[in-house]
Simulated scan of single mutants.
Amino acid sequence: MKHARNNDLSDRRSAAAEAKSALLNAFRTARTTDEPTRLARQAERATITAAREERRLKRERMKRDEAERQAAERQAAAAAALRAETEALEVAERNRIARVIDDEAARKAERDRRYANRKARRA
Rank of each mutant, 00 (worst) to 15 (best):
N7T: 13
L23R: 05
R114G: 03
F27H: 15
R118G: 07
R56T: 08
L39Y: 09
A116F: 04
A26M: 11
A105D: 14
D103L: 10
E68Y: 07
R121T: 07
E104Q: 13
A116L: 05
R69G: 00
H3D: 15
A46L: 14
M1T: 13
S14V: 07
L89V: 09
L23K: 14
A92D: 03
R64Y: 08
R69M: 01
A46N: 07
E93Q: 03
K108L: 08
A26P: 01
N117Q: 12
R28Y: 13
L9R: 07
R28A: 10
T49R: 12
L24A: 13
Q70R: 12
R61V: 03
Q42N: 06
A4R: 14
N7C: 09
R64A: 09
A116W: 01
R38M: 09
A50I: 01
E110L: 05
T86E: 15
R111M: 10
E66T: 11
N95A: 10
A43G: 09
A19G: 03
E110Y: 00
L57G: 07
A77W: 01
S21L: 14
R13Y: 12
F27L: 15
D103Q: 04
K108T: 06
A72Q: 12
Q70S: 07
R56W: 01
E18R: 15
K119L: 14
L24P: 00
A16V: 04
L23S: 07
L23V: 00
A106W: 00
R94K: 05
E35Y: 09
D103I: 02
V100L: 10
R61N: 13
D102G: 08
L24R: 13
Q75L: 09
K20N: 06
R59L: 11
V100R: 09
E60Y: 05
R55H: 11
D103T: 00
E85H: 09
A81E: 05
N117W: 14
R13T: 08
H3R: 15
E90W: 07
A98W: 00
R107P: 00
R41G: 04
R118I: 09
R69D: 12
E87L: 06
A109F: 01
T29W: 01
R69W: 02
M1N: 13
R83Q: 12
E73K: 06
E85V: 11
R69K: 12
A67Y: 01
D11V: 13
D112L: 05
A105C: 14
L39G: 02
R94H: 06
D102K: 05
A15W: 02
M1H: 02
A79C: 03
V91G: 01
R83W: 03
A98G: 02
L24D: 05
E44A: 14
D11I: 05
V91P: 00
E18D: 13
A51S: 11
I48H: 06
L89N: 08
R96P: 04
Q70K: 12
L9A: 12
A19L: 00
R59Q: 15
R122M: 15
E104H: 08
K119C: 13
A46H: 10
H3Q: 15
A98M: 04
T33H: 14
R107V: 03
